[in-house]
Design a protein around this nucleic acid. Structure first.
Lengths: 237, 237
DNA sequence: AGATGTGAAACGTTTCACAGCC
DNA sequence: GGCTGTGAAACGTTTCACATCT
C-alpha cells in the first residue's frame, strides 16, 4: 500500500500528486543517469544494491526514494531498468517539453549551449541572448544569438519556459527581473550573487566559488589534523 | 561561552577545531560574498537581520551559523563587517594558498579559467590541461595549456593542491584516478558521472542537468496544480 | 531464498523564543 | 531598547531492521 489513508481524496492525476522531498529529488536525477547507463549496456534488471552502488548512495535510501514515487519493484527480483527509467522520468516531469533560453553567451553560455546532457533529456534550447553587439547575430550551435534588447519578444515567440542565467554578477538581478516579468517561472542561475525572485518563481543556483571554498575548508582540516598529530606525538615524547 | 566544557582539551590551534555542519558551511560562503559587497559599499557594521536578508536566509540561522565559529558579534550592536569577514575567511581556510589545476580546456574550462571569482578569493590557477593536440601549447588567460600526458609532472612542478575536472564523462573517472594517484585530495567535478574516489579525497560535484531536472519537477507540479484547480472548479459546478 | 517497501530510531537542520549582554 | 547567542521544539533526512511479497 502506498497511500495509507483516503486513497482518492480529491484529485484525478493517476501518477499521484505526492510531494517528493528535496533531498530525494536530487538523487532521483542521479538514478536516472545510472539507469540510462545500464540501458545502454543492455541490462534489463537491477537490484537496489547494484543501482545504489552505481549512484554512489546506500541501498536503503534508494529504496525509500523510489517508494515516494510508488511501488515499482518486484520483491525477490529487483527493478526493471526500462520501466523504472520511465517512471522516474514521468515523476520528474521530463516527458513534458521544456524550452530553454540561455542568457549570456560567454564561455559559460557556450559550454551550456553545447552540452549534450540537455538535449538528451527533453530540454531543448530555443534561444540565446547576449548584450555584446559583436556576438549578436552570430551562430552558436544551431541557433542565432539574439540581442538582449529583444528578450521579451524572442522569449514569447520561441515560447521558452525556462531560462539559464550565465551573465556577469552586476547585471544578473536586472535580467532576472525581466525574465520574471516575461512570465518565466523556472530559472537556473550561474551568477555569483543572491537573486531576489517572487515566491512563485523557482530559482536554483550553481555556484563554483562556493564549491571551491567548501573544498578549501576540508583540505585545511585535513592539514590541521596532520599538524596536530605531529604536535601530539612530540608532546608525548 | 562558546565551549561548554573542557575549554582546552588537547589542541593548540587558536581558532578552535570545531567541525562546521555541512549546511552551515554552504551558507558561510554566501555570507562572505555579502560581506565583501558591504565592504565595497563602505559599510562597517551590520546586524544579523540585514546580513541575512542580503544572503537570502533568515536571521536566526545566520546567527546560529556564526555561533559555530565563535562569538564575533556585539549584543545590541551587530557585527563588524571587516572583522567578521576575516573570521569567516580564516575558518574556511581561505587564508592558505590554494593552487588549482583545471583539467579540460573546452568552453567550460575556459569559462572557469577566466572566472574572476577564483582569483579574488585566494584560489590561484596554476595549470591547464587538455587532450586535444591543437589546444595544447596555446595560451588561455596567462597560462599555457599543458598536454594531459604531462599531468603528473606538471602537477608536481606547479605544486597544485586542488583540481577542477571539466572533461567529457567517458574520460572523467580515468583522469580522476590519475589526479588521486598524483596526491590531489580536493577535486571539483563538472562531469555528469558518479566518480569513485578513496575516502581521504574530497570530491564535490556541480551538475547542471540535475539542476534543470529539479526545475522541471517543480514547474510540472505548478502546471498540475493549475489543471487540478480547473478540474475541481468544473466538478463543483 | 531473496529483494522490496516501510515503520521506527538515530541523526541533522531549521525555527522559535528568550535569556543575556551591550 | 536592541541585538546577539543559544537551549528547546519542530521539522527533515538517513539508517536500521524486518515484515512482506514473489
Amino acid at each position: 500500500m502506498t497511500t495509507p489513508e483516503t486513497p482518492e481524496l480529491h484529485s484525478v492525476s493517476a501518477d499521484g500528486g505526492r510531494r517528493i522531498p528535496p533531498a530525494s529529488l536530487t538523487r532521483l536525477t542521479i538514478y536516472l543517469r545510472a539507469l540510462n547507463s545500464l540501458l545502454a549496456d543492455g541490462i534489463e534488471r537491477v537490484s537496489s544494491e547494484v543501482l545504489a552502488d552505481a549512484a554512489g548512495v546506500n541501498s536503503a535510501i534508494l529504496r525509500k526514494d523510489l517508494s515516494y514515487l510508488g511501488s515499482y519493484g518486484t520483491r525477490g527480483v529487483g527493478y526493471d531498468v526500462q520501466y523504472l527509467n520511465r517512471q522516474i522520468s514521468t515523476a520528474l516531469g521530463l516527458t513534458l517539453d521544456w524550452r530553454v533560453a540561455i542568457i549570456g553567451v560567454g564561455n559559460l553560455g557556450r559550454a551550456l549551449a553545447g552540452y549534450s546532457g540537455f538535449a538528451s533529456r527533453g530540454f531543448e534550447i530555443v534561444a540565446l541572448f547576449d548584450a555584446d553587439k559583436i556576438v549578436v547575430g552570430s551562430e552558436v550551435g544551431w541557433l542565432r544569438v539574439s540581442a538582449i534588447d529583444d528578450l521579451e519578444a524572442v522569449l514569447e515567440r520561441t515560447r521558452a519556459n525556462m531560462a539559464v542565467l550565465a551573465v556577469p554578477a552586476p547585471v544578473a538581478q536586472q535580467l532576472c527581473d525581466r525574465l520574471v516579468a516575461s512570465g518565466i517561472t523556472s530559472i537556473l542561475s550561474f551568477a555569483p550573487v543572491v537573486l531576489q525572485v517572487p515566491p512563485h518563481v523557482q530559482l536554483r543556483k550553481v555556484d563554483m566559488s562556493t564549491e571551491l571554498q567548501i573544498l578549501a575548508y576540508h583540505a585545511q582540516r585535513a592539514q590541521d589534523a596532520v599538524i596536530e598529530s605531529i604536535t601530539d606525538a612530540r608532546s608525548a615524547q
